[in-house]
Amino acid sequence: MAELTAVLASTHHPFYLKATTAPPEERMPQADEWKRKVEAYRETLTAAEPDILVMVGADHFHQFFLDNYPTFMIGKQEKYDATFYNEEREFGIPKYVLDGDLVLSNFMHQGLLDEGFDFSFSHELKIDHSIICPIITVRPDADLPVVPIYTNIFAPPLPSPKRFWDLGRIIRKIIDAYPSDKKIAAIGTGHLSLELGGPRMFGEHGPDPEFDAQAIEWLSTGNIEAILENVTHESMASSGNATHGFMDLILMMGIAGPENADYVDQLDLYHTREMFMTWYPNKNDKMAEAAARSAAEAGGVTGPVYAAKAGATA
């Protein structure tokens, strides 16, 4: 059977590439620290030696619109073009062509249907920055085949937080049952508190630092009970009108299971807080050493982060 070697859940920040490749005189003060943290996070994936990436993201009205917006969708292609014109324009993200893995896409799709998740599917999916941002940060060579999974965190009505957790659990079950000797990593991005187009956007910090600290604790301790007790569509909206991307992080925790994370790092930026989290479901020495090295390099930790502690050091 296939081996799930790593689960990565992080925020996606489309300005990362621009911010860290700008000429020195135009660089934001945190650019070097941000780059160091991202490169350290990348090592936590490299150590898992993946052959295939199952990637979770959400289309931001780039391909899909309100005439037909999929709630959950899987790509089923040999190749995927990526990055739309307006993402190049606004974020300076380059175009990519990623390889797909049609066999795993088909296996995943059938498994999802069998388990009660009636997915939409696409044979002409173009990938947006929700999946290209983590390619840029954790696999910049873009040399591995991907299986893209999209969720609706964007166009209400949205599925419940519980549904995202359940979907993660099912994806894990399907990966574990995949008859292959390949190593698979699951990588998904979303958001902590985030505001777009409203009064709390582009502030000095994210719109709700308290939620961010709490969310990192819940995720890094695998505490799904606390999430389901405290996180609703309304509570996320009160933390910032685009905070619902947090549900993709709940999905990733669902893939990892109710377990402590093996690597946690974060960075308080203007507009939003970055979070970098990795679980190793089948941890070996090499992975543990990589996480420890990255934590030392970037100022992260190799286990859970609790809200009070994070607040005290922020």
Partner: peptide, 16 residues
């Protein structure tokens, strides 16, 4: 914003 048009759509267009 008051009308409830989707924020992502007019944010990216008007920034552009």
């Amino acid at each position: 914003f008051a009308y409830g048009a989707h924020f992502f759509l007019y944010l990216t267009l008007f920034i552009g």
